[in-house]
């Protein structure tokens, strides 16, 4: 393996990892506040990919407006799911298991809703950026560079909101103890709303990037489960963990695939099992036994 090939693959890995990061922070944010894995997130990402597809092919808007529309569409969908599905469960103080089952139900519903209303055929995004930049012997696709840049910016904005703003502080407080947060006057419904909105917007962004790189079909929500693996690997509930876990997973996955592409998914899910068996709190997660 020469250096140039290595660097090329590294960039591919970072590109994939950045996309996983946009997805996995959504899992982590929801987990940190509500202690369950929101498997409807895959469906939200998938719908984002479709919004991007139709924005480009039917509305003929350029990349940036389409990208923002994806964020808007998925953000609204995430909130809608919270209001219609999780909010009633929350009011009843239902156990985590109910949330997970409902989340899976919502995910399957979204998949079939798309099949019923659009169809199940895979679609390709139009080529947006065909050029590539050469950089010290490396040839980088403009789309790859753009993906890394928009992922980085989105994640930095998210980290800023969480670390530096008042609502971010409220989110961190409630992630530790919601009851104590309420005693400070924090409106926990607002915190949950913001968490789903932010996770949803980033899911929409990720959906568009996924569509640009791969393909759009109703089942891509399942493929994006790999970002859940990344969140677990990094430590469910920890944002920095989700980001680091995603980048590592993306890079490792690309290198495993370049060795033998059949091992790609096997590797990812073996990693999931390994983490859960050996170190359930992941790289940086909070230590809780009840990882539902």
């Amino acid at each position: 393996m020469n250096l140039q090939y290595f660097l090329q693959q590294l960039v591919n890995g970072i590109c994939l990892g950045g996309m996983y990061a946009l997805m996995s922070v959504g899992y982590s944010l929801v987990y940190s506040i509500m202690n369950f894995s929101n498997f409807a997130h895959g469906g939200v990402i998938m719908v984002g990919a479709y919004v991007g597809y139709f924005a480009l092919t039917a509305l003929h808007v350029p990349f940036l407006p389409a990208f923002l529309l994806c964020g808007l569409g998925s953000g609204l969908l995430a909130i809608l799911i919270e209001r219609l599905v999780y909010s009633p469960l929350r009011k009843r103080h239902a156990p985590s298991l109910y949330f997970i089952i409902s989340a899976m139900g919502a995910s399957i519903f979204l998949e079939n809703f798309v099949i019923a209303t659009i169809d199940g055929t895979p679609r390709n995004y139009p080529t947006l950026f065909a050029n590539s930049i050469s950089l010290g012997g490396l040839s980088l696709g403009v789309d790859s560079v753009l993906m890394i840049i928009v992922s980085a910016i989105s994640l930095l904005v998210l980290m800023f909101i969480i670390q530096k703003t008042k609502i971010g502080l409220a989110i961190r407080a409630c992630s530790y103890n919601e009851k104590a947060g309420t005693l400070m006057g924090i409106n926990s419904s607002l915190v949950i709303f913001v968490v789903f909105l932010m996770g949803g917007i980033l899911a929409g962004f990720a959906g568009m990037l996924y569509g640009m790189r791969f393909i759009v079909k109703p089942t891509i929500g399942q493929v994006t489960n790999k970002s859940f693996v990344a969140a677990v690997f990094g430590g469910l509930g920890s944002l920095p963990g989700a980001i680091v876990g995603s980048l590592l997973l993306g890079v490792m996955e690309i290198f495993v695939a370049s060795f033998n592409s059949n091992l790609r998914d096997l590797f990812v899910y073996a990693l999931l099992i390994l983490v859960l068996v050996i170190k359930p709190s992941g790289l940086m997660g909070k230590v809780v036994e009840d990882k539902a």
Partner: peptide, 19 residues
């Protein structure tokens, strides 16, 4: 006590003044 163990002392105090 129910303090926020994941936050700093200052952040805990500041949360008291949240509203």
């Amino acid at each position: 006590r129910l303090i926020f163990a994941n936050l700093t002392t200052y952040e805990n105090l500041y949360l008291g003044a949240y509203l």
